[in-house]
């Protein structure tokens, strides 16, 4: 009885982990900007990996495999933010600007400024 319950809960964890990994990768492919892409990739590194590894821990039970999974999760938890911090700091140092989608004051002052064109109002 308890085995079926643990199996079901770990299945939910593994499937939701795969879902969040996929969501993060879609964001990584489709976001418009380096910083928003980092925001999307952090979903893969924290939530997706965490849920997937916790689900695998439930499947493994109290064995050496669970200990290795704990070490893997700790490794991802500690080194992922470090790599993200170094990446953002290096990008800011070199001068990568975030893309701001629309600046409404700018669009009101200059009709041909950046942002979506609205030809009917001119």
């Amino acid at each position: 009885m308890i085995d079926v319950l643990v199996d079901a809960i770990s299945g939910v964890f593994i499937l939701s982990g795969g879902f969040f990994i996929l969501v993060g990768a879609i964001g990584l492919a489709r976001m418009p900007d380096l910083y928003t892409r980092m925001h999307a990739a952090s979903v893969t590194e924290t939530l997706g990996a965490g849920l997937l590894l916790i689900g695998l821990m439930m499947q493994a039970g109290f064995t050496l495999v669970t200990l290795k999974l704990v070490f893997l999760l700790l490794l991802l938890v500690f080194t992922g933010p470090m790599a993200s911090h170094a990446l953002a700091q290096a990008a800011l140092h070199v001068g990568v600007k975030p893309v701001l989608a629309e600046d409404r004051r700018d669009r009101l002052d200059k009709p041909d400024g950046p942002g979506p064109k609205s030809g009917s109002e001119a």
């Binding site: 990994i21 993060g24 990768a25 990584l28 380096l34 892409r37 980092m38 990739a41 893969t44 590194e45 997706g48 990996a49 997937l52 590894l53 893997l72 991802l76 992922g80 790599a83 990446l87 290096a90 990008a91 070199v94 990568v96």
Partner: peptide
């Protein structure tokens, strides 16, 4: 930096 981010993500996904 986009390529570095994608490479880091590929590494994480390879571990998983």
């Amino acid at each position: 930096f986009d390529r570095v981010l994608a490479g880091n993500t590929v590494g994480t996904l390879a571990i998983l």
